[in-house]
Simulated scan of single mutants.
Amino acid sequence: MSTSLTELTVDATTVDIIIYRIFSFLQWVDNYGKGSKHISIDTHHNLPTEIINSYLNDYLLLERRTSEIAINQHLMALNAYYNYLTSIGLTNLKRLYIRPDLKPLARGNVKRRNVVKYLTPELRSLLYRNAGSIRDDLLLRTAGEMGLRAKENLGFLLNQ
């Protein structure tokens, strides 16, 4: 099977993603290879395809619950990296993939952002009227005027 590689130009953001994802992979190789004389950073370029695919499927998807976007970034980065290593003669071409049975899991591994909750003007007014002291009233009014979210308001500290 003869496969030719095509050189592509990518933007700076993509380069940053690739570097970060490769760094994560190399950290995993370092931890995974502890106690093994065959798997290490020194030999990562010759890792069997099965081990790299295990990183993608077993570690990232099953263990770490990586999202679809992140797993696609890891796959893109590792393909780019190993294609480069192949082009300079350090390794053979790797067939990296996400197992089809795990793709729905990746789609479901999305961290939902919570809705930002602000205090309504009516609730703020009620809080101001029922503040136990002038200090509490001033704290609440300051936070309200600054447009702070309810959670941010909890972060205020006072020296007494």
Rank of each mutant, 00 (worst) to 15 (best):
L140K: 03
A106L: 00
A106M: 04
N72Q: 13
D11G: 09
R129K: 15
L127A: 03
P48L: 00
K34R: 10
S36L: 09
P48Q: 09
L85R: 10
E145G: 08
I71Y: 05
L62T: 12
T66S: 14
L157C: 12
Y59P: 01
Y84I: 03
L96W: 05
S54V: 00
I52K: 00
P104C: 04
N114A: 12
T13D: 12
L119Q: 04
R129A: 14
I17Y: 00
I41T: 02
S40M: 03
H38D: 11
A106Y: 00
D11Q: 07
K111L: 09
G35W: 05
Q27W: 02
E145N: 15
R141M: 13
S133N: 05
L105T: 14
L158F: 11
L5N: 06
D42Y: 08
T43P: 01
L139H: 02
D42I: 00
P121C: 09
V29D: 01
A106C: 01
A131K: 01
I18R: 07
Y97P: 04
T91D: 00
I52M: 08
V110W: 00
L90T: 06
I39N: 02
L140G: 04
M146I: 10
Y32W: 07
T14A: 03
K111N: 06
F25L: 07
M76I: 05
Y32F: 14
D30Y: 05
G132E: 09
T3Y: 11
F156M: 14
R107K: 15
D11Y: 07
G144M: 04
N79V: 08
L85Q: 10
